[in-house]
Design a protein around this nucleic acid. Structure first.
Length: 488
RNA sequence: GGCGGCGUAGCCAAGUGGUAAGGCGACGGUCUGCAAAACCGUUAUUCACCGGUUCAAAUCCGGUCGCCGCCUCCA
């Protein structure tokens, strides 16, 4: 099966053919470390994490680079506000980044370069651009001359003329073209700075990704990605820098993820609806966040809502309930009990579907990482397995084991279903119990009373207790093993 | 103003030429004292609207309406 991806450059799905057979070099724009990460960062990070995982799953030797922008206007501003050094701000939010992204279960990239640790590479690149006539120096600043690069605008599909017509950039007399952007900025008092051929200064934003991707992945990357908002100007500028310097194609496949809205509104600081990852994982298990995000296609906008998150939580719990049921049965059986001998036609059918699961999963993922379809397959498999679980025959473990393997293997690619089912359900239970006004002890007491009433066929009293607890969000389940309770 | 995207059931959401995945909800059934969970079944003759191309269109083309993003820092 061949993997097809949507390429922003060509606006088409194309077969992902790497430059070197069996190897993939991929670069995802990371974060500027001046504040806590929000759900938008989480989406981007999770999307590229899943892409990384899937490429590895397909057997590619992947080099994944994700950078930290640790020198930038916003960091400087923040540092000045707090009266501390920029290094302190950067170090603080890098640490927070690891805490938050670690919580979301992100795999570590191959390399995580920091801009400040690659100043010499950036200076060299800028010098190269000046030599080739793509950049010019004015008063210690260096600007990229967009008119010197014929392909400028090819990724974002705009021409220089169009952009100039609608330009809202401030006029700077020293620039040859208003759209020329800074490669190097002369230092100002109180700002971090480094030595350069143009005097003390610091790099512009776009140059770091060109320099660092080149260093770790070579002149041509297979995949470069980030949020849709980076298409212009960031990625457009990166192309101009990299291709202007090397004269070779910069990126084979451009991948961009869609935005996150909050309750149908654009997320923005002025609206005060910024949701940080920290806040979210306080209320939801990280796998719930992943399931929620991956239930939509990565290129579409997604609306982050309580309703959507609750649905994801309910669904994940359902999956884990199935898995817990399976584990309970197969724990007694031997590893080798996954053969198909002696199965009933019904069991055989499920066995086959479990066997084919990975094929279907890969078909979905091969189609531009269609995680929504992949997750739909999980629902189907889950139904199949629940049917077996309902009334397990002596041969059931053979089928269940097969299904369990499928869940674990494909789940690993999405970064879900990786917890022990019992543990997961217990953690979720505790999380909900904390919200209750009643204590478990009080609940147990009421259940005891209700069971007394039931013994005496006092259905009125029994139902009264059930309804009372239900009004608190507590659901009673009468089973052969007695009565258990759970929180809605 | 320029560029781009989107509009699929009550809701969420796949599907980009071959006759509408999946989830939530709702309804009916199995089970239950009643429930819950789980399972079974039903729930879009139709994909914003109008016109066109085609044997065939949610998918392609033209137009209309509505929503959104980018063009300035942004995942």
């Amino acid at each position: 099966m061949s993997l097809r991806v949507y390429n922003t450059m060509t606006k088409k799905k194309e077969e992902l053919v790497p430059l070197k057979k069996g190897r993939i070099g991929m670069y995802a724009c990371g974060v500027t470390v001046y504040d806590l990460c929000h759900i938008g960062h989480a989406r981007s990070a999770v999307v590229f994490d899943v892409i990384y995982r899937y490429l590895k799953h397909k057997g590619y030797d992947v080099t994944y680079v994700r950078n930290f922008t640790d020198v930038d206007d916003k960091i400087i501003k923040r540092a000045q506000e707090e009266g501390v050094g920029t290094e302190e701000i950067a170090a603080r939010y890098i640490e927070e980044f690891y805490t938050d992204m670690g919580a979301l279960g992100l795999l570590a990239p191959t390399v995580e370069p920091k801009a400040t640790e690659h100043i010499p590479e950036m200076v060299a690149l800028v010098q190269q651009l000046i030599e080739k006539g793509h950049a010019y120096e004015v008063d210690g600043d260096v600007y990229y001359a967009v008119e010197s690069f014929p392909g400028y605008g090819k990724l974002s599909k705009r021409s220089l003329d169009e952009m100039q017509a609608g330009a809202r950039v401030e006029v700077d007399e020293r620039k040859r073209n208003p759209l020329d952007f800074a490669l190097w900025k002369a230092t100002k008092p109180g700002e971090p700075s480094w030595q350069s051929p143009w005097g003390e200064g610091r790099p512009g934003w776009h140059i770091e990704c060109s320099a660092m991707s080149q260093k770790y992945l070579g002149d041509t990357l297979d995949i470069h990605g980030g949020g849709k908002d980076l298409i212009f100007p960031h990625h457009e500028n990166e192309i101009a820098q990299a291709e202007g310097a090397t004269g070779r194609p910069f990126v084979r496949f451009w991948l961009h993820n869609g935005f996150v809205n909050i309750e149908k509104e654009k997320m923005s600081k002025s609206l005060g609806n910024f949701l940080t990852i920290k806040e979210i994982v306080k209320s939801y298990h990280p796998e719930v966040v992943r399931l929620f995000l991956l239930s939509r296609h990565y290129r579409s906008p997604v609306d982050f809502s309580t309703q959507g998150m609750e649905e994801a939580r309910r669904n994940l719990e359902r999956f884990y309930k199935t898995l817990a049921g399976i584990d309970e049965i197969i724990v007694q059986t031997k590893e080798s009990d996954s053969a198909s001998e002696g199965l009933s036609p019904e069991e055989m059918a499920v066995y086959r579907r479990a066997e084919e699961f990975s094929t279907h999963f890969e078909e979905a993922m091969d189609d531009d990482f269609n995680t929504a379809v992949a997750i739909a397959h999980f629902f189907e498999l889950s139904h199949d397995l629940n049917r077996i679980l309902q009334d397990p025959s002596p041969h059931a473990p053979q089928v269940l084991r097969k299904g369990r393997e499928a869940f674990a293997l494909a789940g690993k690619v999405l970064g879900i279903f990786q917890e022990d089912p019992q543990d997961f359900l217990e953690v979720e239970r505790q999380r909900k119990i904390e919200q209750l006004t009643l204590t478990p002890k009080e609940i147990e007491k009421l259940i005891k009373e209700r069971n007394e009433a039931r013994k005496n066929k006092n259905w009125a009293r029994a139902d009264e207790i059930r309804n009372h607890l239900a009004s608190q969000g507590i659901v009673l389940e009468d089973g052969p093993q007695g009565t258990t309770w759970r929180v809605e």
